[in-house]
Amino acid sequence: MNNDKSIEGSRVKSRHSFFARLPRGTWPLLVLLIFCNWTQESVAMNREETIIRTGMKSKAGRSIDWDVSPDGAKILFNTGHIADGLLLLDVQKQQVSKIPSESGRFWEMAAWSHDGGQIVAISTVVRDNRYQVGEQEVILIDPSTWKHRTLTVSKGVNIFPFFSADGRTIYYFKGEERDSGATPASRFDLYAYDLATDKETRLTYEQIYQVGRGHDDGKTIMFSAYGIRRMPSINPNSRRQQEQRGIYIFDKTSLHLRHFEIDQRNGFFELSFGDRDVARNIYFRAAKLPPGGGRFVWFIYRCNPQGKDCTMLSETQIGTDVRVAQMTGEILISVAQSDEIVFRRLDQVR
């Protein structure tokens, strides 16, 4: 015991000796350097140009599901309240209207095609005011009439549909319902639906625990996921590697799925994919530990197509997503405030 105390005492003495040898007035400089290191990328956090109000409240504990049109003029979103249904926000007027849907069904997870001419969404059965997990259809919607077509996909928990870059294929994730556990469904894989032939094709065989919305740039599909045990996303702050969220990329030619490496030398982790712009820059949400420890702080980042040169765009909160209006380059993020859902427009893609 005395020996241990002696060793610890020598360590403390060593640390104190180091600081004692610092020139007078160095402490304020050290504090300033630490602060600058934490905020060096945050110049971009003053770029917010517009707050877009909706007047709608989100359901407690539920993330906002949304997508922006390619021209940046409209936003499709859900609040999480079944009675609200699928909503359309006119960005300029800041007016919200409810999209007419089928009786006994809830339209959600809507996504625009790259040219803005079509919308794909999930139509979920609602019974006794409750979602029926596993009774979800993929539907194609004409935004000029709001008429829809139901795609003949196989049964399963179908979620997060999105268009191919050329608009000819619908991609989505299909999972299995769970009888117990923290989530109602898991074991997801990526599927493709050819709109010309009505043929469904399974693309991956990973049985992923959880997935997020994807994006196709014509050559690759990118999405966030966790629970891919054969290629865990490393979180330096957790030992449970297989459960850490990361960004993955699927090559449409080789049909190969791999973990997409992003330069994390500035200390962020828990990456959640948001979108890509026409130059294939990647937008995502990630967490950082503040100086001195404490609760995670969440930010929106952008990096180049190789996963390098990451820039912090905005401080945000967990559950926030980022989207890019493909035609205009506008960057938007969602914020579920306690009293209202709002969207914030950042600078355009440069």
Rank of each mutant, 00 (worst) to 15 (best):
F163L: 03
D67T: 12
Q136V: 02
V157N: 11
S113Q: 15
V68E: 06
F106S: 09
S97R: 13
G117W: 00
F77T: 09
I139E: 02
G181D: 15
Q94Y: 06
G181V: 14
E135Y: 05
K147I: 01
E102H: 13
D166K: 11
T145V: 05
D84Y: 04
W146V: 03
T169N: 07
I119A: 00
S113E: 07
D115S: 04
F173E: 12
I141A: 02
S123M: 01
S58D: 09
Q136I: 01
K59D: 03
S154I: 07
D115W: 00
I139F: 00
Y171M: 08
V120L: 03
V68C: 08
D84F: 03
I141E: 09
V153A: 07
V125A: 01
A83L: 05
V126N: 07
P100Y: 07
E137S: 10
E137M: 05
A111C: 11
G116R: 08
R62W: 08
E137I: 00
S97I: 11
K147M: 06
D142F: 04
Q92L: 06
D67P: 10
G175T: 13
Y171S: 12
R127Q: 14
H148G: 03
S103L: 01
L151A: 00
D128P: 06
G156F: 00
D179H: 12
I170T: 13
Q136S: 12
A73L: 13
T169E: 14
D65M: 06
S97V: 14
L86P: 11
Y172L: 10
F106Y: 15
S113R: 07
V96P: 08
F77H: 01
S180W: 08
L76K: 04
F160C: 09
V133D: 07
D71N: 15
